[in-house]
């Protein structure tokens, strides 16, 4: 039974990773027609280096993700402090209001933003994408930091106050240092959400002001080139690294943990 279960798990992993591995491998194959035998070449990566459009879209993606991470982490952390450390009327409703960006299909959110930004004159472009990405990332940040606050015992702050700390001093000396792993984790999470976001960026992009996923999408629709494999592989590896970093920081086992 056990070995059967392990074989099944192995098959699931093959299913999950097979296309990714094939794609990554093809980026190193000299033939543009995916022909075998495999002929190792970095030709497509060299091509990529000369593709100004993709490079620019790549930088756009990175800047957007960095800004999203900074803004969403700052705002979301403040909101998490209120939602998890203070009691007030309407708290339950405010927590529920975090769900729409997560639970509503991005197609609907994205088209709604398109309509509204057009209507109000905000328009489309990187600034509009930033507004959208931050909104998508805030709920995740609030939830990650909130979970961190939940595992952080409130009596540590009380202990600090019993020793003479004002609430603000207690926050900076005790809560913030212990919450740091969660905050860094949340920032990485927000970065990943933005870096991989396609649907919202797609509706809010204008030609010449796109992100990497949008550019990849239009390239796929126009026809394959292994260059796309190369850039896709880079994007995959980048987001895997970011997410493994998140797991490292935000998992229980950071210094904020209970013994």
């Amino acid at each position: 039974m056990t070995s059967l279960a392990r074989i099944f798990l192995g098959l699931v992993l093959v299913f999950l990773y097979l296309p990714i591995v094939v794609m990554a491998a093809m980026g190193f194959n000299a033939s543009p027609l995916y022909a075998l035998p495999f002929d190792f070449s970095t030709h497509w990566y060299e091509e990529l280096a000369g593709n100004g459009r993709l490079i620019e879209a790549g930088w756009n993606s990175i800047w957007l993700a960095v800004l999203t991470a900074v803004i969403a982490t700052a705002l979301g952390t403040l909101a998490a402090l209120a939602l998890w450390r203070r009691t007030f009327r309407g708290r339950a409703i405010l927590r529920i209001l975090l769900l729409p960006p997560i639970a509503i299909p991005w197609l609907i959110t994205g088209t709604a933003m398109l309509v509204f930004f057009f209507w109000t004159g905000i328009g489309r472009g990187l600034h509009a994408m930033l507004i959208g990405h931050v909104a998508l990332a805030i709920p995740y940040v609030v939830l990650v930091v909130g979970t961190g606050l939940q595992t952080l015992r409130a009596d540590l702050e009380e202990a600090a106050m019993s020793l003479g700390s004002t609430p603000i001093h207690a926050f900076f000396r005790v809560t913030l240092p212990l919450l740091m792993p969660s905050i860094v984790g949340a920032a990485l999470f927000a970065f990943a959400v933005s870096l991989d976001q396609f649907v919202i960026s797609y509706f809010l992009s204008v030609p010449g002001m796109t992100t990497l996923p949008v550019e990849i999408y239009s390239a796929i629709r126009k026809g394959f080139t292994p260059e796309i494999n190369a850039i896709s592989t880079i994007l995959l590896v980048a987001s895997m690294i970011v997410i493994l970093g998140f797991a490292r920081f935000a998992r229980p086992g950071g210094i904020g943990e209970r013994s």
Partner: peptide, 29 residues
């Protein structure tokens, strides 16, 4: 408020600051 009362309190869970040394904990107040 608590912080201006000059009390000493020991909590059920001890509530030692996990990111500080023993000396820093004791010296906090």
């Amino acid at each position: 408020p608590v912080y201006a009362r000059n009390i000493g309190m020991v909590f059920q869970s001890y509530a030692l600051f996990p990111h500080m040394s023993v000396a820093a904990n004791v010296g906090f107040g």
